[in-house]
């Protein structure tokens, strides 16, 4: 079987456990002084790359590269990926801090990824099926389009045999299994795996692993947003229910509600 070089996406997002608040301008969520972490679906992507290496061996999976596009602090998320076991990190620096997270839209990210892929030449790219901040779920698909590579999105199981990638996907009616040739793009679904914790020895080792930095200019990528965000609002507050005393009252309430 041929060599595998895996690139994984690692986006910095507001921590899953934090309740986001809309900012006063109603154009974005508040990011200042809010805890940020690695996008959970990206964490699953890193885990899957590591499991592929554990399964196929070091002589097949030659390198696992973690890539992030974001502010300087996004290096924290690269450190997480390295501490989990990735070999090398690439940081495309965009924006000065988390307040500028909106600059990057999926198409720009896909183009930045393409530029890095041209440099690093991976033959398997694993991304999260979406980031939990904008929930766009577009980057993987756009990247496949730009590269003209096959894509296997929403993967709940990944197998590699020689050059053949077999992916099980969760679809509405059940499971769908597809296969394609490498190089390819995979996006991860929740049930693909359960990510490991970063262990102490690996955290220490991660400090010595290489981290390469680029800017969009150096990569010749124009990241000018194509979409304008008009407004961001909180979901409507759920109205509390009421208790009824009797069946009659229930029926009359249902009638009132036009049911």
């Amino acid at each position: 079987m041929s060599n595998l070089k895996i690139l994984v996406g690692c986006k910095r997002v507001i921590d899953f456990a934090v309740k986001p608040r809309v900012n006063s301008a109603k154009k974005a969520v508040e990011t200042a002084n809010v805890k940020h972490s690695l996008n959970p679906f990206d964490e699953i992507a890193v885990e899957e790359a590591l499991r592929l290496r554990e399964k196929l061996g070091n002589n097949i999976v030659k390198e696992i590269i973690a890539l992030t596009c974001g502010p300087p602090k996004a290096q924290e998320q690269l450190r997480t990926a390295l501490a989990m076991g990735a070999d090398k990190a690439v940081h495309v620096e965009v924006g000065k801090d988390d307040s500028e997270a909106n600059i990057l839209q999926p198409l720009s990210v896909a183009k930045l990824f393409r530029a890095i892929i041209e440099k690093e030449q991976p033959n398997l790219v694993i991304l999260g099926k979406q980031a939990i901040d904008d929930d766009a779920s577009q980057t993987g698909q756009m990247l496949a389009g730009l590269l003209n590579w096959p894509q296997a999105t929403f993967a709940s199981k990944v197998d590699i045999n020689d050059d053949k990638l077999t992916v099980t996907r969760e679809v509405d009616g059940g499971l769908e299994t597809i296969s394609c040739k490498l190089p390819a793009i995979v996006t991860t679904d929740l049930r693909l795996n359960e990510p490991r914790f970063a262990t102490l020895p690996n955290i220490m080792k991660a400090k010595k692993k290489p981290l390469v930095k680029y800017t969009p200019d150096q990569l010749n990528v124009d990241i000018t947003p194509r979409l304008e965000i008009i407004s961001v609002t909180e979901p409507p507050v759920r109205k509390g229910g009421t208790k009824v005393e009797s069946v009659e009252e229930l029926i009359s309430k249902l009638k009132q509600a036009g049911l």
């Binding site: 921590d15 899953f16 456990a17 934090v18 805890k35 972490s37 690695l38 959970p40 964490e43 997480t80 501490a83 914790f197 970063a198 262990t199 102490l200 020895p201 955290i203 220490m204």
Partner: peptide, 27 residues
């Protein structure tokens, strides 16, 4: 925290350990 953990490892006070990477892992 890093310095603390490094010292524990160097002095072989702990063998292994994990550090939470996000709030969910803390919980």
């Amino acid at each position: 925290l890093q310095n603390f953990l490094e010292e524990l490892l160097t002095n072989e006070i702990v063998k292994d350990g994990v550090v939470a990477q996000d709030d969910t892992q803390i919980a």
